[in-house]
Simulated assay, not measured.
Amino acid sequence: MCGRYFLLSDSDAIEAAFGVKPDVAPPPRYNISPGQPILIVRQDPLTYAPKREVAMVQWGFIPDWAKEPTFGGAGGGGAGPFVNARGETVHEKASFKNAYRRRRCLVIADGFYEWQRSGKVKQPYRVDLGEPGLVAFAGLWELWQGPDGSEVETACMITRAAGPSIEAIHHREPVIIPPEGWDDWLHADERDMKLYGRWLDRDPPLWTPHPVSRDVGNVANDHAGLLAEVEVEEAPEEPQQFDLF
Rank of each mutant, 00 (worst) to 15 (best):
E92L: 01
N84L: 03
Y30W: 15
I62P: 04
L46D: 15
G80D: 02
Q58P: 00
R86V: 01
F61K: 07
V107P: 02
R101D: 09
I40T: 00
A99Y: 01
E88P: 12
F61M: 10
R52W: 04
E92G: 03
M56S: 11
P26A: 08
P27R: 12
Q58Y: 00
G73E: 00
F71V: 09
V121H: 12
V83F: 11
N84G: 03
E53S: 13
A85M: 05
Q43H: 15
P34I: 08
P50C: 10
R103T: 06
F96Y: 15
T89K: 13
T70D: 13
R104W: 12
Y30N: 05
Q43V: 15
Y48H: 15
I62M: 05
A99R: 01
M56F: 00
L46P: 03
K120T: 14
R86H: 06
T70V: 10
W115V: 00
A85V: 03
G77M: 12
W59M: 08
G77I: 03
G76L: 10
Y100E: 02
L39S: 07
I38F: 00
C105E: 07
N98H: 15
Y30R: 05
Y100H: 07
Y113E: 09
I40Y: 00
I62Y: 01
K21H: 12
Q36G: 09
A55Q: 12
Y30A: 02
W65F: 14
L106T: 01
V54P: 10
A66N: 06
E114K: 00
G87R: 14
D23H: 10
V121R: 09
W65H: 11
V41K: 06
P69N: 07
P27V: 08
P81R: 03
N31K: 07
Y125C: 03
A94P: 01
A25G: 07
K51W: 06
W59F: 06
V121P: 01
P27F: 12
W59K: 04
E88D: 15
A85H: 02
I32H: 00
K51E: 15
F112S: 02
P124S: 10
A25M: 13
P27T: 13
P50H: 14
V41M: 08
A55H: 14
G78N: 09
K93I: 03
Y113P: 10
G119R: 08
V54H: 08
K67Y: 00
D64G: 05
V107Y: 05
G76I: 07
A109I: 12
Q58H: 07
G119T: 06
R101F: 04
A55Y: 10
D23N: 15
M56I: 04
P27C: 08
A55S: 13
G75T: 11
A66L: 05
R102W: 15
P22L: 09
Y125R: 01
V121Y: 13
K122T: 12
D110V: 08
Y125P: 03
K120G: 14
W115T: 01
G73F: 00
R42H: 15
P34V: 06
A49L: 11
L46I: 12
Y113M: 08
N98T: 09
D44E: 14
K122A: 13
V24S: 13
K21D: 12
